[in-house]
Design a protein around this nucleic acid. Structure first.
Lengths: 205, 205, 205, 205
DNA sequence: GATGAATGAGAATTCATTCAT
DNA sequence: TATGAATGAATTCTCATTCAT
């Protein structure tokens, strides 16, 4: 169900509030204030606060999915697809900091069963997508084969998440895109198959 | 400031509540109920709720520090020290799940400036310790030198955190210790210096 | 003031809502929902909610009056008229359960002065009509004369109301028409003048 | 569970509010105002508003039961027991008008499933008690045997209820005790067994 | 070391109603 | 004849905290 114009404005305001102060800062009153209306007005557009939060999560999902669509349509495969996905993470965070701050703190939602299933589903889909790409990369020999796919997913996504969190906690204190690129280079080093890597090292000397 | 007996009991109850339902589940009323006393009773032992939360954080810090003390006293160094630290993380999580669930969700605290500085300091100390160990490991040649220390910290700690989070979100659905050991093996593979690794690969064939 | 078609539909929806959940279930929002329109639409047809409630009461009155018109036009008198009235009560309840459930719970309205006078007037007219019939019945000897009219009204109408209430509270758990007929037989027994009754008893032996 | 002193005061205030304006007049705010405290204070004594309402119902039940205890302990039986019960109804109403006004309007509660079962249970117990007494009265010949017990219950209790309701709706406009006594005399007339009644009628002529 | 009673602030939500279109 | 957007007032309830005992 597509969000209407007014609903979109509400979700955006909700994201702003949540980004600056966590879910605890997202109250109907503040949300109404942010939009310059009274509280009951919101209930014309959403059944209740939960629906607003769910819409926030949904909005993150659709932004996230864009990159998969692009990867699909452009026919990118293997390690290049992983690279696209990883770098896209950082771009999303930069383009929609509110959205990102909210979504990379699943813990806030995880205790509310109403939200957690939504989130778990989304995370699972991401993992499936990434694992598929990694399988291709192992098959074509660009990625080492001595690490299981699921673990490899953690080796990639764990650092990505940590970097984003550090960026958020440092009050955007460094260039996320640049450090993200560096991280990708290092990820490629540690994940690439042996032959490639030996070659890489040679040029280092 | 050492916690007295009664304070300890309160902090433990607080950890239990926070573990099952997030910080939002930690209310003075529930805390009192958990302990079988009335709310005002708690104010005999802590100035206010904030102090209780801070004591929670502090209790995590002291548990965390134990491993550093051990590493120091036993004279462990380099990659072995990192290994001890990483595996200790998983052991802590298993031994004190409440504590862990709470502490590996910094986001919950990060929006309250009162808590976030405490946490940031703690995280910074951990990073410093780890980086020191990694520097030693690079120096003695057990760990590759083509990755900067800070990034290497992320490459190690990111996956560790993600694994712990997955374990929590999966309702303890897998053997954390076993998967943790596997993760460490893979971490060693990707971090070890070239020569070693080439050797590893030979044995694989 | 005759209700127009749209007004009638609104009153009927209002009756349905009130029947299933009491006056507390009658909100403008639900009423609009029941009719598939938005709330402001209702204000095209009624000045405010009060007018809708009053129309509900009025609609009960007109249904109630039908039996008096019939009694009048058919020239029925005395105990037979009372019988017609009483049995008509049960028929109304069956035919328009919503209407009945609402109207036999005057308490719901009685605390709102705006409605209570309407209701009191209606109840008073019913009592007057019934007392007139009973007077005729006492005059022609079919009904005992040792009980004052007003009290006799209570002795008849009290049980009738209680039966209807029991039927409603039992979720329509019994055959109201049949039990109503039985009640009328018993009412006739206790109200009939002595001679008749002695005769009745003889046949019992 | 016996009510504590403070709880009793709250229930009494709640009864006052409900008596003057129906359940709709019973809001936590008004209740707090009536007691001269703030709203949250009430939640120290009752879990929620529902519990207060239930306590109201319970308080009516205990007052109601007193008469049964008395009847039992004094060994009253048959029609005399019924008389005691009926007249006690009127006395209760006079002594605790708030309580009565509330309780003789079950409709207000009947739509809330939470309350209705409580009420239905109570009404059922009253009916059982009355029917037992009436059975004794039929057995000893003081009450006519040509009417089934359940119907006889309605013939007695229906008028009693209606009288109480009329008294309430008339703003206590008549002497309930006196009219109640008259009603009982008439009830006795219509319910007494034939022989008695023939005698009564003789004196009428 | 604890309780009973209370509070001010604020939470989410529902209500009947209005107004411009 | 209706809608979309909004509102003021009210609702029940929870929060951390205080204070006298």
């Amino acid at each position: 169900m597509q969000l209407k114009k007014r609903q979109l404005a509400i979700v955006e305001a909700a994201l702003r509030l949540t980004a600056s102060g966590g879910l605890g800062n997202l109250t109907v009153k503040k949300l109404a204030g942010e939009l310059g209306v009274t509280e009951p007005a919101l209930y014309r557009h959403f059944l209740n606060k939960s629906e607003i939060v769910k819409a926030m999560i949904g909005s993150f999902e659709s932004v996230s999915d864009e990159v998969f669509v692009r990867i699909e349509s452009e026919g990118v495969r293997g390690l290049s697809a992983v690279e696209l996905f990883v770098k896209n993470r950082f771009q999303i965070v930069l383009k929609k900091p509110a959205l990102s701050k909210v979504m990379f703190s699943e813990e806030q939602f995880i205790d509310e069963p109403e939200y957690s299933s939504l989130l778990l589903g989304m995370m699972h889909r991401h993992k499936e997508n990434l694992c598929r790409m990694l399988r291709e990369a192992q098959a074509d020999g660009t990625v080492r084969s001595d690490i299981r796919l699921e673990m490899m997913f953690r080796l990639i996504f764990g650092p990505v998440r940590l970097l984003i969190k550090q960026w958020g906690m440092s009050q955007q204190g460094f260039d996320l895109l640049k450090t993200g690129d560096e991280m990708w280079e290092d990820l490629r080093k540690i994940l690439s198959s042996g032959k490639e890597r030996v070659g890489d090292e040679k040029t280092d000397h």
